[in-house]
């Protein structure tokens, strides 16, 4: 494989890993606070639809982003109500949210735009455009570093950089702030947090809310940056891959970045069977590449590659002692 192709592949990796990373970090906040969330998929999908719809109607992608975040937060509140306030089953609530989003997006899209459950194609200000980082043009002709900077690091949409910046930010929030300490504690031992006089309910709602915002950005990225408009089921299992990455990363932010990059790379490979064939000089089955993230996750879950231990209070509704 020549250098240019490698750069292309890595470039595609970054683009495809971005929604995974955002959703993965979203799940990280929620699960670290003890709220399992298999509704990442649905929240992304709802955000993708509403962001594309608003961007198409107003022609302003930033309004679209806000609307997408809003849609995702609404579903987060539903999840919060079900799993925090009414102490229901968090997994079932997540399943319900996924279906709610899968159904509602198509129903509303069909009655709104009458294009068979999709939104109109976005163009111009309705989409996030790639931004060129400073000096990218100037450094372009420097060997090795120039192309890496120009092709790989520069020239992505703003949301890609937002996603990448979220990694250190999440690390800082979780491990260096009081809020983060409490958030982690509420996922391990909510009773202790409660005894310390800190509201378990508030912390968990805050975590679920942050999860909603990040899923919203992830969904908006799908519809307004990665592609130009919403199509039915466009999240295509990314919420589940993000969940897999989260387990792979053992609920830690930096490892989440590595896991998402790995899964993004697998997705990029699946898109370029010709490159794999040239490099490995034999044909790799396309289906195998598609399901590799899932198989990897099962292997990791089985504990063959280090044990993944979830937050101890995960999935358990907190009932105050009386």
């Amino acid at each position: 494989m020549d250098f240019a192709t490698l750069l292309q592949m890595l470039d595609a990796t970054v683009r495809l890993a971005t929604p995974l990373l955002l959703a993965c970090l979203a799940g990280l906040y929620s699960e670290r606070a003890g709220i399992f969330d298999i509704g990442l998929e649905g929240k992304m999908l709802a955000a993708a639809f509403l962001s594309a719809a608003i961007a198409a109607v107003t022609g302003n992608v930033w309004l679209g982003l806000l609307a997408g975040i809003g849609a995702s937060i609404v579903l987060s509140v539903v999840h919060g109500l079900a799993s925090i306030t009414f102490r229901g089953n968090q997994l079932i609530s997540g399943v319900a949210i996924n279906f709610l989003a899968a159904g509602l997006t198509v129903v509303v899209a069909q009655s709104w735009f009458k294009q068979g459950g999709r939104t109109p194609q976005l163009s111009g200000d309705g989409r996030f455009e790639p931004i060129t980082l400073p000096f990218a043009e100037a450094l372009r002709d420097v060997p090795i570093i120039g192309p890496i900077y120009y092709e790989l690091i520069s020239g992505h949409t703003p949301l890609v950089y937002v996603a990448l910046l979220m990694v250190p930010l999440t690390w800082w929030v979780l491990y260096r702030t009081r809020f983060g300490l409490r958030l982690r504690a509420v996922g391990e031992n909510p009773a202790a947090v409660d005894t310390a006089g800190v509201s378990v309910v508030f912390l968990r709602y805050a975590a679920v809310g942050i999860c909603g915002i990040l899923c919203g950005i992830a969904g908006a990225y799908l519809a307004t940056a990665l592609q130009a408009g919403f199509v039915k089921d466009m999240s295509a299992g990314r919420g589940y891959i993000a969940l897999a990455a989260l387990i792979f990363a053992k609920w830690r932010p930096w490892y989440a970045l590595y896991a998402c990059m790995l899964f993004g790379f697998l997705q990029a490979m699946a898109l370029r069977p010709d490159v794999i064939e040239r490099v490995l000089s034999f044909q790799v089955n396309g289906q195998l590449l598609d399901v590799l993230p899932y198989i990897l996750t099962v292997i990791i879950l089985a504990g063959f590659v280090g044990k993944a231990i979830p937050p101890r209070a995960g999935g358990e509704p907190y009932v105050k002692e009386r």
């Binding site: 539903v78 109500l81 079900a82 799993s83 009414f86 229901g88 089953n89 968090q90 079932i92 609530s93 399943v95 319900a96 949210i97 996924n98 279906f99 709610l100 899968a102 159904g103």
Partner: peptide, 10 residues
Amino acid sequence: ALVILFTGAL
């Protein structure tokens, strides 16, 4: 989805 939500989670 609504049935799952109301009979299951809520």
